[in-house]
């Protein structure tokens, strides 16, 4: 008498009288995460911005605070285990929506999506804060990280600034229908540039942003 153990995905065991080898491959959905070079999830994923001294003038253009989204130790991964076969997008937006602000945790804040004078003055949005964040994924590097996949049919987004109400999301990656259905890869080197309004009080400021991988 012999038994074969069949383990279902729910972990329940059944007995059968025919010898069979079974294995379960759990299906997966499209996902995104920040992983390190060993593909381990980073505990506090972030993009650090360059520090700036207090200034009576607006810090914009070459004087703006800059950062990098996706570094070698914080790779911006997308994993598609055949969950998004029609293509997908990777976008970034402020978690608190269009009215989000950079904040020091107290009363000091400035804006990330005010288009007034390239972020140097308060525009026609709902708040009274200036400041604008620009993201340029096009200068980044897209790397495929699986044996059978390539970066073909995946395009990087253009440089884009957040504008309250009209540009709440920035496209980082756009995968076509013909992109690999089973794909894992990462983006590094997308640049960030934040206009700092004049006379912004010195403090450590944070803004929460959410990366969304969407199956199309």
């Amino acid at each position: 008498m012999c038994f074969v153990i069949v383990i279902s995905s729910s972990g329940v065991a059944y007995a059968a009288n025919t010898p069979t080898f079974n294995q379960t491959i759990t299906s997966g959905g499209l996902s995104t995460d920040i992983l390190d070079a060993s593909r381990v999830s980073v505990a506090s994923p972030s993009a650090t911005m360059s520090p700036k001294g207090f200034s009576f003038t607006c810090l914009t253009g070459g004087s703006a605070s800059t950062g990098t989204l996706g570094t070698d130790s914080q790779r911006l991964y997308v994993v598609n285990p055949s969950g998004a076969n029609n293509g997908w997008t990777l976008t970034i937006a402020a978690t608190s929506g269009a009215t989000a602000l950079w904040s020091d945790g107290g009363s000091n804040t400035y804006d990330f999506n005010d288009a007034g004078t390239a972020g140097c003055s308060d525009g026609a949005d709902a708040d009274t804060k200036a400041g604008q964040l620009t993201i340029d994924p096009s200068v980044g590097t897209l790397t495929a990280d699986c044996t059978s996949c390539t970066t073909a049919n995946i395009t990087k987004g253009s440089t884009s600034a957040f504008v309250e109400g009209t540009q709440n999301n920035v496209t980082l990656l756009n995968a076509a229908l013909a992109s690999d259905d089973v794909w894992r890869g990462y983006l590094t080197g997308a640049t960030l540039s934040q206009t700092i309004p004049a006379e912004t009080p010195g403090a450590a400021y944070t803004i929460n942003m959410t990366l969304t991988a969407t199956a199309l």
Partner: peptide, 27 residues
């Protein structure tokens, strides 16, 4: 529209810079 799936337990936030969270969505 979208239906979004997001881990309730989000990564630890840093005190400066852009703190990142993640989610997956189906059109």
């Amino acid at each position: 529209g979208c239906i979004v799936v997001q881990n309730v337990e989000q990564p630890t936030k840093k005190n400066d810079g852009v703190a990142l969270s993640f989610r997956s969505a189906l059109r």
